[in-house]
């Protein structure tokens, strides 16, 4: 492909090829402190391409491809090329990852122990993870938590934090010195702005942690907490995993071990200040 960059996020190496310079420049800039894949050999390839040669110039539309593809994925305008690259990397993970059980969850770490937060889009996974990073937690990732079936430990995948709509200003206030990507308006998920994880989170991204607390946050309700029984946790996490079925028995064992060993709480919250206090209190009570 015409333009190319390589990077490693957590334990996963990517090679990104593009028909355009712009998305590659954005990735290089925002991921400048990330290492290259080990030995320059990538786990996954990502393609950002024009469906027809003239669509490189005429109303350029960025199609997403790679080692693993879904048919009929809608293309994005070139101005959202960075988002296309991010989506394409996520897609490779969601469809192709077989080493780790993939949980659609954000994760933060303190003292070698991790809090995993999972929930539907809009539950506040990314926002809470970013705000916890501003309070001294190590950000392990805002999208995927990787459970190693061999050890039961969680590996981080600290890609750029994808902040949406109202969360953007809130996190910018909490992290005034952090690096942010361009404001992407009119994306399929509204306005998006990417946050670069802090230096410590990037430097420590290869370090796994012991899962210690599982949270199911829900935004927009009166403050409430309830313990979630293992049976419900199991079902919710099978739904939150993109590769649980494909991992077969390894996936089942990894998930049941996790569910048995880690306490789980559902937390409802009306605002992030309340949520952060809830998380800290639950953490201290462990």
């Amino acid at each position: 492909m015409r333009h190319l960059t390589e990077l490693r996020i957590g334990p996963v190496g990517f090679r990104i090829g593009s028909d355009w310079q712009e998305p590659i420049e954005s990735i290089r800039d925002l991921y400048r402190d990330y290492p290259a894949p080990d030995d320059q050999i990538a786990d996954f390839n990502v393609h950002l391409f024009a469906a027809r040669p003239w669509r490189r110039f005429l109303r350029p539309a960025v199609h997403i491809g790679g080692d693993f593809v879904i048919p009929d994925a809608a293309p994005l305008p070139l101005s959202q090329g960075l988002l296309a690259a991010e989506m394409a990397m996520n897609l490779q993970m969601a469809l192709g990852q077989r080493r780790y059980l993939l949980l659609h969850a954000s994760a933060v770490e303190r003292d070698g122990k991790a809090v995993l937060m999972t929930g539907l889009s809009g539950a506040g996974k990314s926002t809470l993870a970013a705000l916890m990073m501003s309070r001294g937690w190590r950000l392990m990732g805002d999208e995927f938590a990787l459970i190693d079936p061999a050890t039961g430990r969680v590996h981080g995948f600290p890609r750029l934090v994808s902040l949406k709509n109202a969360a953007i200003d809130e996190v910018m206030r909490a992290l005034p010195k952090a690096r942010f990507g361009p404001v992407l308006k009119g994306t399929p998920k509204g306005t998006i702005r990417h946050l670069v994880p802090d230096a410590r989170s990037i430097a420590a991204m290869g370090e796994a942690a012991v899962p210690a607390l599982l949270l199911f946050p829900s935004f927009g309700f009166d403050a409430d907490e309830r313990k979630v029984l293992p049976s419900e946790v199991f079902v919710r996490l099978t739904q939150a995993s993109t590769n649980y079925v494909a991992m077969g028995e390894h996936g089942f064992t990894a998930l049941t071990d996790l569910v048995r060993s880690v306490p789980a709480q559902a937390i409802d919250y009306p605002d992030t200040t309340t949520a952060l206090a809830q998380v800290e209190r639950l953490w201290d009570a462990l």
Partner: peptide, 18 residues
Amino acid sequence: VPVPVTRILEDARRSAEQ
């Protein structure tokens, strides 16, 4: 083979077994 290749091929063997 290089270390990252070892990992990728291990995953592929496990995946094929499944």
